[in-house]
């Protein structure tokens, strides 16, 4: 049974229709990259799947209809990491990560263990007592990812978690998402970095014109023709023993203007 299933999902941002019939599923054990140009509707799709943006069509979380779940039941099934990295007050990092435990009502020991594990996973050991508002941009991003990890939901929806991280922490993040998937969870991650998507994700879903236009192994999805059509770029495609290598190298040759 899939952790997330979208069938014919439509949604608007303001008056502008953004999603026009999206079909997408995420199964336990896989990291799925959600790709698409700026404004393609990646964030709208993630917010709809998390139950915080209105959408029509069928959305199921672990087999249950999204609308039938109350807010807490939803929070136990899906963790959502927004693109905006808002931290309103100077909570220390441990307290900030601990916010991910709010839906659980578990014992303090279980909460502490989950928080410690998430902090270690995001390479933030030693930062526990630091006010989160005094962290650098990348450290702040890692603390917020740790918050979403501490929620320990079977499905993680992450909106641009890699933006603003240095290469070492980008790689550590993607390796962590893979590790999560290996323990039976599912991850849907919106990415702009095609290199990370190609190398670290089990599947790529390409959002264009309000629909998923391609869905499959990254190498099958990110073809030269699609990169030119969706992103307007040319990329160098290669692979080594560990997987695909994709490096965007320039703009696609201009297409004839349509009249």
């Amino acid at each position: 049974m899939s952790l997330l299933a979208l069938e014919g999902v439509t949604a608007s941002r303001g008056r502008r229709p953004v999603l026009a019939g999206v079909d997408l599923a995420v199964a336990p054990g896989e990291v799925v990259a959600l790709l698409g140009a700026n404004g393609a509707g990646k964030s709208t799709l993630l917010r709809a799947a998390a139950g915080i943006a209105p959408a029509s069509g069928v959305i199921r979380l672990g087999g249950a209809a999204l609308g039938a779940l109350d807010a807490r039941a939803r929070a136990l099934r899906v963790a959502y990491l927004p693109q905006e990295r808002e931290i309103a007050w100077a909570l220390d990092v441990a307290a900030l990560v601990g916010l991910g435990r709010l839906p659980h009502r578990a014992t303090p020991e279980a909460d502490r263990a989950a928080v410690a594990e998430a902090i270690a996973a995001m390479d933030l050991a030693g930062f526990e007592a630091r006010p989160a508002t005094e962290l650098s941009g990348g450290e702040r991003a890692r603390a917020l990812i740790a918050r979403a990890l501490a929620q320990e939901a079977p499905l993680l929806l992450a909106d641009e978690p890699a933006a603003g991280l240095d290469p070492a922490h980008q790689i550590a993040l993607m390796a962590r998402l893979r590790l999560l998937a290996r323990t039976g969870r599912g991850v849907l991650v919106a990415l702009h970095d095609l290199s990370l998507a190609a190398r670290w994700c089990d599947r790529a879903a390409l959002l264009h014109g309000g629909r998923i236009v391609a869905d499959g192994p990254p190498e099958a999805v990110l073809t030269a023709a699609r990169l030119a059509e969706v992103y307007g770029i040319v990329a160098h495609l290669d692979r080594d023993a560990d997987g695909p290598i994709l490096v965007p190298v320039g703009p696609a040759p201009s297409r004839p203007e349509r009249g």
Partner: peptide
């Protein structure tokens, strides 16, 4: 208390943490 704690992360994150 709990709702305001979650709102530290913004409205979307709070809603995803189960806050109405």
């Amino acid at each position: 208390g709990r709702s305001l704690d979650a709102l530290t992360l913004g409205e979307d994150a709070a809603a995803s943490l189960g806050v109405s």
